[in-house]
Each structure stands twice: as C-alpha cells, then as structure tokens.
Design a protein around this nucleic acid. Structure first.
Length: 470
RNA sequence: GGCGGGGUAGCCAAGUGGUAAGGUCGCGGUCUGCAAAACCGCUAUUCGCGGGUUCGAUUCCCGCCCCCGCCUCCA
C-alpha cells in the first residue's frame, strides 16, 4: 500500500506523492511556537505528530528537510517584554531555550532549521513580499498606516478553511481595525508602530512598524524551501486564518501552488475542553516531570491517539502510558536474554511482516500500529514462556524493534548503573536468602526500596530495577 | 448560523458489508518462603438514537441527539 494522508485542502485521503518522487527528497514546513511563555503539552501534541510524520517518512526512505519557525515578535511577546521590563530579544530567548529543552525531553527530532521572525534576513524577505503584493493590487496601506491583504482580490481565499467570506462572524476574540480596512476579513501584513510597541520596530517603505503574524511563515517557507513545499503542518486552529493567509500571501507573490499536502492535528483536551493558555487549563512539560513522569511517558501519552482525533489529557492516561511502556521494556529485556550471543549478529534475516509500517502508511494510523506491536509482544512472550523462541528469532525481533523504534522513539534510556550502596545491600540480601533468613531478606528488600530500587526474585536469582513511584 | 472533527467495554482506542484489534483497569492462574514485578488467561450478543437498503449493517443511505474545535494574530 502506498502512503496516504488526509489533506485539509481537499478534505480527503490522498495518495502521497512529493514534488520530486525520484529524488526521495521532500520538504516539510511546520508552524512552531510563539515564544512568550513556556509551551504547554497541547502545543507538543502537534510537534509530536509532526515528529511521527517525519520519522515515518524517513523509515519509508524519504530524505526529509524540515523547517520550523519561531515566532518571536507579536502582541504577546511585546507585552511580555514590556511587563518584564527587558528587551524583546532577551525576553523571548528564555522561552526559545525552554522550547529546545522540551523537544529534547520528548525525543522530537530537531528541524533542520528554526528560523526566527525577527531575523533581519526574513524581515527583508517579508518587506519584499509585501512590496510585490502591493504592486499587484493584492495589498494596500490603510489610513492607520498598516498594510493589509485585500482578500477580495484573491479568489481562492477561504478554500482551505472552506469558509464563505460573506458568512464570517466576529467572535470578538480579536480587536478589529474595522474603520481602516476595506473588508473586515483583510488581514495585516505590516503593522504600523504604535506606543505599545516601545522600541520594537523596523523601517519599511510604509514607515516604522513590525510584521503581521502570517507573513513571517510565507517569507521563511519560501526563503528556505522555495515556492512550493510538499507538506505543511500545524494544529487545526491554524487552518483559519493563519494557513489561509499563508496561501494568499505566498501564491499572491509566486503565482504557484504553495503547498501540496496540508496536514492538521486535532487538539489536546483537558476535562473535555481545549487546552490553552487563555483558558488557563494547561500543563507544561516541567509540570508533568515534577509528577514523576518521564519524557517518553509523555511522548507515548500524546502520540497514542490518531492525530486527527481529539485527545483528552488525563492522569489515568499518563498511568496507562507508563504501564504500556514498562511492558515494552520487559519484553526487550527478555528478548535480549534469549538472543544471547546472537545479540551482535546483524545478519539475522527476518520475515516479520510489515503491518506496523503499513498501518502508519495509512494516514499515520498509530493505534493500529501499536496494536500490532503489542500483539507481537504477546505472541513472542508466549513463545518464550514455552522456551520455543530460539536465539536467532529473538534477534530478528530485536532488529524489527529497531525499525519500529526509529519511528516511535520510545525505547528506555540505557540501563541506569546500580549505585554502590544498593549493590552492597543486594549482595547481603543474596547471602541472607541463601541461608533462608527471610526476616533479614525482607528487611533488606525494604531498605533497597527506600533507596529507589525494586527487588525481583526470579528463577535466575535476584534482580534489581529502578522503582517507579506512583 | 456556517465549516470541520468526534461519539465502539470502567477508561483510552483500531476496525471491516459477513458477525468486534490493541492498551489500561479489574479478576483468575504461573512464578515466589511471602511479596513485588513479570508473564499467561478471562472480561462488548454489541458499536450515540430512530428509520431505510441488504440474506446480513458497527460499517452504506436518510433523519435526529450529544461532545469538542474554528469562524481574522491559539498547536
């Protein structure tokens, strides 16, 4: 089966074919964070979806070039910097740092480029694009000195969101400059400076000001990836107006179809409502780490539901993630033991089926893919229980897992080294057990547990594992 | 009101015109001196509701209900 994705533009599943299939190269542009505060895990759901997409495309042999922008100038960043009484750049820098820490914790592959909106190179590009739009009559400078996109001149405007422009209703979320714009739907390309902006301003043919939000993505995407890109992703809330505006701006300048496949991720909900900063119902990564969950627990919890379905965040879901991962961990330990000295044999051939990647081919059907993984785990465990899995087969499964894990990125970090004091207590306990001194053995078990290690008495003797606090 | 997404077991969730994957919880078993952990097994006569098409519908069609989102700077 070939790869297929649900394209927001057509609202249909489409077979995937990049611009240049022969080269196996493709470009992805993804909308990144606005760095005015720490991103919340709802934001990361989108980034994890994009990571899954990239990793799966790579498993399928594509060379992915991905760009993720950083929005480091807008109303919120300016307000934040003013309140903190520090320069905009200094203010946003801390959240950029935090963002990079968080994506590392979540094992999200870094994009090839992380362009910032305030980079002079892109400011220049934005001005150049706006100039072209103005010269073509697609944009105009209004009374308030800001420059707006004239949506009536762009017939395709509204096609991505499937909106009828005459039906647009204000939600009151945004203040309108209704008196200055020709049409309520016209959006700002360049915002004229006002007092609130302080020293945040760039010179332009239209006077001092700053870029509108949408234009940065058009500028950075076309500057780094050219006039046409294969895949563009983001959260569903970006469909309108942001991505709609990007299409209008980019195509208004280049005259070419901007994006081949638009992929959008549904929201993370909490208590059945969208997780968002404005509602205040959000968690950040450090919030969850403080509760004892690891980056991969969170990765699993955010990844396990199909990207187009809403995902309700719950503590029960976090617990489920932790348990499911423990199951994978144990399976790998067993497989490695079974593989024995075949462990380094890279030549083990395997005919273990393609069901995992085939599920992902189908619009990233992660649930079906995980279903197949866990089925495989149960079957191999059963075989190992009976002693029917030979070393070569175990190694074959490990090789298979490597492929799977290149997409999931869920394998536990290399085993933690046993601290000396724990090792010593463990040895004493071994001795106590040999003498069948159960009282002493149990005491030592408690003391080892206090040090954060769990004792497991198996057929092959005592084993220790880090204790996960619940 | 317009445009989307979703409604399948206690919870999460896949799926197909032919009789419901998987995870988690719970229960039972194996192992153990006892535990814990792990592993194995069991757990939906039924897929929001009502019609229709069909030999057969959770799946297709029609109508309705509920939840969530977007409707001009939110991932």
């Amino acid at each position: 089966m070939s790869l297929r994705f649900f394209n927001t533009y057509s609202r249909q599943l489409e077979d995937f074919e990049p611009r240049d299939p022969a080269s196996r190269k493709l470009d992805i542009y993804t909308c990144g964070p606005t760095v005015y505060s720490r991103a919340h895990i709802g934001n990361f759901r989108a980034y994890i979806f994009e990571d899954l997409l990239q990793r799966h495309l790579e498993l399928r042999g594509y060379k992915v070039h991905r760009v993720m922008n950083i929005t480091d100038v807008d109303d919120k960043t300016i307000r934040g910097a003013r309140e903190a009484k520090i320069a905009l750049q200094k203010f946003t820098e801390q959240f950029k740092q935090a963002f990079f820490e968080d994506i590392e914790t979540l094992r999200i592959k870094r994009a090839d480029e992380f362009p910032s909106a305030t980079d002079q190179r892109y400011i220049d590009r934005m001005i150049e694009m706006i100039n072209t739009l103005v010269s073509r009559g697609l944009a105009y400078q209004a009374e308030d000195k800001s420059v707006y996109f004239r949506i009536n001149k762009f017939p395709d405007y509204g096609k991505l969101a499937h909106f009828d422009l005459t039906q647009l209703q204000s939600t009151g979320r945004v203040k309108h400059d209704e008196y200055d714009k020709e049409h309520i739907g016209d959006f700002a390309l360049w915002k004229a400076w006002d007092e609130e902006d302080g020293d945040v301003a760039w010179e332009s043919p239209w006077g001092r000001g700053r870029p509108g939000w949408h234009i940065e993505c058009s500028a950075m995407a076309t500057a780094l990836l050219g006039d046409q890109i294969d895949i563009h992703c983001g959260g569903v809330d970006n469909i309108f107006p942001h991505h709609e505006a990007e299409i209008a701006q980019s195509e208004g300048v280049t005259g070419k179809k901007f994006v081949r496949y638009w992929l959008h991720c549904a929201h993370l909900l909490v208590d059945g409502q969208k997780m968002s900063k404005s509602l205040g119902n959000f968690y950040t990564l450090p919030d969850l780490l403080k509760k004892g969950y690891t980056g991969r627990d969170i990765r699993y919890a955010l990844m396990r539901v199909h990207y187009r379905a809403p995902l309700n965040f719950t503590w029960e879901g976090m617990e489920e993630a932790r348990q499911a991962l423990a199951r994978i961990d144990e399976w790998l330990v067993r497989l490695r033991e079974t593989a024995g000295d075949k462990i380094d044999n890279k030549n083990v051939d395997l005919e273990l089926g393609q069901q995992f990647e085939e599920a992902l081919d189908d619009d990233l059907n992660i649930s079906a893919a995980l279903g197949f993984l866990f089925e495989s785990i149960r079957e191999t465990n059963r075989a190992m229980d009976r002693g029917e899995l030979d070393a070569a087969s175990a190694k074959a499964w490990l090789n298979w897992w490597e492929r799977v894990n290149s997409v999931l990125a869920l394998e536990i970090e290399t085993a933690v080294v046993l601290p000396a004091d724990v090792a010593q207590l463990a040895e004493q306990r071994e001795n106590a057990r040999r003498e069948k001194n159960w009282k002493r053995s149990d005491e030592l078990r408690d003391r080892i547990l206090e040090l954060g290690w769990e004792t497991r008495d198996t057929k092959d003797g005592q084993k220790l594992a880090p204790h996960v606090k619940v």
